[in-house]
Design a protein around this nucleic acid. Structure first.
Length: 810
RNA sequence: GCCGGAGUGGCGGAAUGGCAGACGCGAUGGACUCAAAAUCCAUUGUCCGCAAGGGCGUGCGGGUUCGAGUCCCGCCUCCGGCACCA
């Protein structure tokens, strides 16, 4: 009977489901393991790149379960968002219908891979059951002042006709469609993530089980800078403005000052002035330009405002400019310019022939550019003679003592812009009343149901605004007529807390039962793509901290251990629909089956690294599985009953060594070498089964059993079928992971390498406990070695028994 | 520019400072077959040599060490992230 995966696979898939093998409840007698992958957007077809991730997650679910953990591995759908809406615009199919069809398809594909989940806890974002609690979270943030509406310059994608969060602007373009993002002044909803900037930064230190890469990316994104903020007066006026600098030590080198074109003071300074017209044109151009356009040419331009600012450290009056290299969104939107120590200021000063006064002594020969390195202070009055490191705090102290400035911390992180002018998202639960202003929807009125519309096309405001029955509402406060907020929430709000909902997915009284969250949280293993390093992973940490501060979640970091898998690459690009290089698993399912695909996904390379797709690879893992099948079903060699021989014992010992290796490899996420170890053992077993005397039946039974246990998380269908065929009771998934016997693993005789001057010249089998002296003697006595020693003097012998002896000859 | 990561056979990749190339793919030869597929066996870094054997070899140049793919210093190339962030 051959390896017929096409009947085996559906059989076990339905048994795992119908026998509820992977459905769990809170069980205080067991150690929990909360295994979560970043839930997918239901985009339809899964390709080989997706299957890699799903295989990793499923392997861990099955492996940890066999180790006795109470494993929760849930699944959900990030089902709000632009793709469904765009599909609706193109095809006229309602996003809900489109999305729900995709979910059905994807579930089917997960099933076909043999991926198992606790489907009782399925979370579907676009259902009122779920998004109701998005709205609830919004209200809680609003209560605490952590959600607010404000007019500010925001990123606008003209193609998707919606605003975007800073995190969703990639290389100056829209994360979704790539269109160059514009700046617009709009009134938008924000979450005040900057209140948590320090904690989000500091707590990264606790996340030891996160990849350094991700931690560094978050660190850079939060972008904490320590420095000094001080006020500068505009000479001859009542006006003043604040500047922020990380280099207060260079204040004596200030030779001009710059305001961002959008700075509020600019209007007052130019009104009625000779430069008004020129300045207005410059400002208009700067405001209109996208960020990348502003950066593009690299040349610094600006306009002298006809005013001077007073440098507080020495009273010097310096010319005041507007220039678009100063950004309105960072610091105070105004700078003191120190061309001697800042290259941007240097470039500007050179162009406009402004003074350059060095304040830090240069290395010999340094000229033609700004110097930002270390040195001794010069031209700097009371700072002269100090080093850069000494003079930064000294300068801040001076500002503080004179009441002119303060030590401050500046973040690159901005508040999270969460409102979107699109249809397919969670409605923001706010009402605008002419009498009462902004009024939150009372909790009892949640959910604010997302209404159907006829026309999904983006128009610069949410399509919901066209639904009169949705928009017009009685004010919850005064009862008068009022209008609903029609913007929807960024889908990253949905995904910032879904893992918490898994703990209690269908609670309709509360967002979740804190007791259940207490049992399951934190997520023990979180798996997903590194592309979420600063988006989702930062937002999720923020929301968890807020809910923690509210006393709802016991932990203040959601993900104890993070694993970011590499991408699957084909034809030099990440496998993706948009690149048109996807490999569909369909034909591979038909030819080789799910287990061979899974095994190849594991074997293809280190999970953290990108891997290159190879059409032949699956064939290799299929051959391996087919060989295991034949060995386990007795069609290879013959077995006999006889007492145990040394050879039998060695095969058993090898099986134990394999268990040890596979266990350690899975624990360190080295799945490719775990598979290789199993292949290696199968080669050993194959040779043993074909041995002249015949393999010993008891030994074969024992090692095949171990092999099936190890294969269970990797190639579960075949392993389960063979488990049953070889006469075992109970389902394989419910068995314990095998352990190994250290006495068997230990080798009595090992191969010792003998080197002469570091080059391997011979090998010899020795007792594992050989003493250094005996090892040396054995090595020196080898015929081949003696030849290498002839004519030389032995200077030194390094003995590292039982592995190596190195003889140094001079 | 700054911050990460990586460079090993024809290919994917292995290797707590101790036998470089495990395992797999591909290739070559053989067995089985009328033939093919499947399967099985063998070979497969490179150079010299009939062989025994030896030389060389982990991006480049140095160093530490009895011994370096691995550690240190200086480069090169590629990939990723951040970037007029004051």
């Amino acid at each position: 009977m051959g390896y017929d995966f096409s009947t085996i696979e559906p059989k076990w898939q339905s048994r795992w489901e119908s026998e509820r093998v992977f459905n769990v409840t809170e069980d205080l007698t067991k150690v929990k393991f909360f295994n979560v992958q970043m839930y997918p957007y239901p985009s339809g077809d899964l390709h080989m790149g997706h299957l890699r991730n799903y295989t990793y997650v499923d392997l861990l679910t099955r492996y940890r379960k066999m180790q006795g953990y109470n494993v929760l591995s849930p699944m959900g759908w990030d089902s709000f968002g632009l793709p469904a809406e765009n599909a609706a615009i193109n095809t006229g199919v309602h996003p809900r219908e489109f999305t729900e069809k995709q979910i059905v398809r994807m579930k089917d594909q997960l099933r076909r891979l043999g991926a198992v989940y606790d489907w009782d806890r399925e979370v579907v974002v676009h259902t009122p059951e779920y998004y109701r609690w998005d709205q609830w979270i919004f209200l809680k943030l609003y209560e605490q002042g952590l959600a607010y509406k404000k007019e500010s310059p925001v990123n606008w994608c003209p193609r998707d006709a919606t605003v975007l969060a800073n995190e969703q602007v990639v290389d100056g373009g829209c994360e979704r469609c790539g269109t160059v993002v514009e700046k617009r002044n709009l009134s938008q909803w924000f979450f005040k993530i900057t209140d948590y900037a320090d904690r989000l930064l500091d707590d990264l230190a606790e996340l030891n089980e996160w990849p350094d890469r991700v931690r560094t990316m978050q660190e850079n994104w939060i972008g904490r800078s320590e420095g000094c903020r001080f006020t500068m007066k505009v000479a001859g006026t009542e006006h003043s403005f604040d500047v922020f600098t990380t280099r207060p030590d260079t204040s004596f080198g200030m030779t001009f000052a710059v305001l961002a074109p959008e700075h509020p003071l600019v209007e007052e300074l130019i009104a009625g002035s000779p430069v008004e017209e020129e300045a207005r044109a410059y400002i208009a151009a700067a405001v209109r330009a996208s960020d990348i356009e502003r950066v593009a040419d690299g040349a610094k331009s600006g306009i002298f405002l006809g005013h001077h600012a007073i440098n507080p450290v020495n009273g010097r009056e310096v010319p005041l400019f507007i220039a678009d290299y100063v950004l309105t969104g960072y610091g105070t939107g105004a700078i003191m310019a120190v061309p001697g120590e800042d290259q941007r200021d240097w470039d500007f000063a050179t162009r406009y022939r402004l003074d350059i006064i060095p304040t830090v002594s240069r290395p010999d020969g340094w000229e033609g550019e700004a110097y930002s390195g270390d040195g001794v202070m010069i031209n700097s009055d009371f700072l002269n003679g100090l080093t850069k490191a000494e003079s930064i705090p000294a300068a801040i102290t001076w500002f503080e003592e004179h009441g002119l400035g303060t030590r401050t911390v500046q973040y690159r992180l901005h508040d999270w812009l969460i409102s979107r002018q699109r249809y397919w998202g969670c409605p923001i639960p706010m009402i605008n009343c002419a009498e009462c202003g902004l009024v939150p929807v009372p909790e009892a009125d949640l959910p604010v149901i997302h209404p159907d519309v006829e026309d999904y096309a983006p128009k610069g405001q949410s399509p919901l605004a066209a639904v009169d029955s949705f928009v017009n509402v009685a004010c919850p406060s005064c009862g008068g007529s009022a209008k609903r907020e029609t913007d929807t929430m960024d889908t990253f709000v949905d995904s910032s807390w879904y893992y918490l909902r898994y703990c209690d997915a269908h609670n309709d009284e509360a967002i979740f039962d804190p007791e259940k969250v207490k049992y399951w949280m934190p997520v023990d293993q979180y798996i997903g793509g590194v592309e979420h390093a600063v988006l989702h992973l930062l937002y999720a940490r923020f929301v968890t901290k807020v809910l923690h501060d509210m006393g709802l979640v016991p932990v203040d970091e959601p993900f104890a251990r993070l694993f970011t898998q590499g991408m699957l690459v084909k034809d030099g690009a990440k496998m993706s629909k948009s690149k048109g290089n996807v490999v569909s698993p369909d034909s591979y399912y038909e030819r080789y089956g799910a287990d061979a695909i899974r095994l190849f996904e594991l074997f293809i390379g280190p999970p953290t690294d990108d891997a290159i797709w190879s059409d032949h690879g699956v064939e290799g893992t299929y051959r391996f599985l087919d060989r295991v099948w034949r060995m386990a079903t007795g069609s290879v060699g013959k077995t006999v009953d006889r007492p145990e021989s040394a050879e039998d014992r060695e095969v058993l010992a090898d099986a134990h060594r394999t268990v040890k290796k596979v266990t350690e490899d899975i624990d360190r996420f080295s799945f490719n070498t775990a598979v290789a170890a199993l292949m290696e053992f199968s080669n050993t077993l194959n040779g043993y089964l074909k041995s002249q005397v015949g393999a010993r039946r008891v030994t074969v039974d024992a090692v095949v059993e171990m092999m099936l246990l190890m294969l269970s998380p990797m190639a579960p269908h075949m392993a389960h079928e063979l488990w049953e065929l070889t006469g075992h009771d109970g389902m394989l998934a419910a068995q314990m992971w095998p352990s190994w016997d250290e006495d068997l693993v230990r080798r009595d005789v090992v191969t010792m390498v003998v080197q002469v001057n570091g080059k391997v010249r011979d090998r010899v089998d020795v007792d594992v406990d050989i003493s250094p002296a005996d090892a040396e003697a054995t090595a020196m006595g080898l015929e081949k070695i003696e030849r290498w020693l002839e004519g030389g003097t032995v200077r030194k012998v390094i003995a590292r028994p039982p592995n190596l002896v190195n003889i140094v000859v001079g």
